[in-house]
Lab assay of single mutants.
Amino acid sequence: GLTEEQKQEIREAFDLFDTDGSGTIDAKELKVAMRALGFEPKKEEIKKMISEIDKDGSGTIDFEEFLTMMTA
């Protein structure tokens, strides 16, 4: 499992990506986040990433899903 410290770091990354503070990361926010990390993702790639992570089919990534992605 994760230490509380690791969870906190992932939470901070999540909050950075969640620019509108909605508690979820949408495609637009993910794209901005990827760019910040030096990637140039295409729209299809973003969609694919979200569909792989987005277990509940909401079209957005919540913290639990993000946590799973970061620790996979």
Rank of each mutant, 00 (worst) to 15 (best):
L2D: 02
P41G: 14
K42D: 15
G1I: 13
L16A: 09
E4V: 09
T71A: 14
R35N: 10
L2V: 07
T3L: 04
E64N: 11
G57V: 05
D20M: 04
I46P: 01
F14V: 00
E65Q: 15
M49L: 13
K42G: 14
I25R: 00
K31N: 11
D18H: 02
K28A: 11
A36V: 11
E45S: 11
D62T: 15
E52P: 02
F66R: 00
A33N: 01
E12I: 12
K28G: 08
K7M: 11
K43P: 15
G23A: 02
F39M: 08
L16F: 13
G59I: 06
I10H: 04
G57M: 11
T19L: 08
M49A: 05
S58L: 09
M69Q: 03
E12R: 13
I25E: 00
K55N: 10
L2E: 03
E65W: 11
I50E: 03
F66W: 07
E5T: 11
M69I: 13
Q6G: 06
I10P: 01
K48E: 10
A27R: 07
S22I: 02
K47E: 15
L16E: 06
K43Q: 13
D18I: 05
L30C: 05
F14P: 01
M69P: 00
A13V: 14
K43A: 15
D18K: 02
E65N: 06
K48I: 08
I50Y: 04
K48W: 04
L67W: 10
K31S: 11
I61H: 00
P41R: 03
L37F: 04
D15Y: 06
T24Y: 13
T24A: 07
D26V: 02
E12A: 12
E12S: 09
E40S: 09
E52A: 11
M70K: 01
E65R: 11
A27S: 09
I46W: 08
L16S: 09
S22V: 04
G59C: 07
S51A: 12
M49G: 02
K7W: 10
K55A: 08
A13E: 03
E45H: 11
G23L: 02
E40N: 15
D54L: 14
I53D: 02
E64M: 07
Q8A: 11
L16R: 13
L67D: 00
F66S: 00
F17M: 10
R35F: 02
G57L: 09
E29A: 13
I53A: 12
A13W: 15
G21H: 14
L30Q: 00
Q6P: 01
K48N: 08
M49R: 07
E40M: 13
D15K: 05
F66E: 00
E45L: 14
E52Y: 14
G38E: 03
K47V: 08
E64W: 12
L67S: 01
I50G: 03
A27D: 05
G1D: 08
K42P: 08
L2P: 05
V32S: 15
K48L: 06
S51G: 07
F39T: 02
F66H: 00
M69A: 11
G57Y: 08
D20V: 04
K42M: 11
K28L: 08
S51N: 10
F66L: 04
M49E: 02
G57R: 06
I25V: 03
K7Y: 13
T60A: 08
F39W: 14
I10Y: 14
A13T: 13
D56L: 11
T3Y: 04
I46H: 03
D62W: 04
I10N: 01
L37W: 02
E44H: 10
D26C: 09
K47S: 13
S51M: 05
G21I: 01
I10M: 13
K47T: 13
E40W: 09
M34V: 04
K31E: 15
G23H: 04
G21K: 12
Q8T: 08
I50C: 06
K47C: 14
T71E: 12
F17S: 09
G57S: 05
M69H: 06
A27F: 13
G23D: 02
M34R: 00
F63R: 01
Q6W: 13
I10L: 14
S58F: 07
L16T: 08
A33C: 08
T19A: 10
A36E: 09
L67Q: 02
F14G: 00
F39Y: 13
L67M: 07
K43W: 15
L67E: 02
E5K: 13
K31H: 13
M70N: 01
M34S: 02
T71V: 12
Q8L: 09
I50N: 02
G21F: 04
P41M: 15
D20W: 04
F39C: 14
G21W: 03
D54G: 10
K43R: 05
D62M: 05
M70W: 09
G59P: 04
I53H: 13
Q6T: 06
Q6D: 06
M34N: 00
I50S: 02
A33Q: 02
M49S: 04
L37T: 04
F14H: 00
E4Y: 07
K43G: 14
T19V: 07
R11W: 05
K43I: 15
I53N: 06
E44L: 07
R11A: 03
K48V: 05
E64V: 05
I50F: 13
G57K: 06
G23C: 06
F66C: 01
A33V: 15
T68H: 14
T3M: 05
K48H: 11
F66Y: 02
E9G: 13
K31Y: 15
D54W: 07
G23Q: 03
F39K: 04
K42A: 12
I25L: 14
K7N: 04
E44P: 08
K55Y: 05
L37M: 12
Q8Y: 09
A27T: 12
K7G: 03
F14D: 00
E12L: 12
F63E: 00
E44K: 09
D26P: 11
K55G: 08
Q8E: 05
G21N: 07
F17W: 10
R11K: 09
S58E: 06
D26I: 02
L2S: 04
A33H: 02
M49F: 04
F14S: 00
E65L: 11
P41F: 15
D56E: 07
K7E: 06
A13R: 06
E9K: 15
G38F: 01
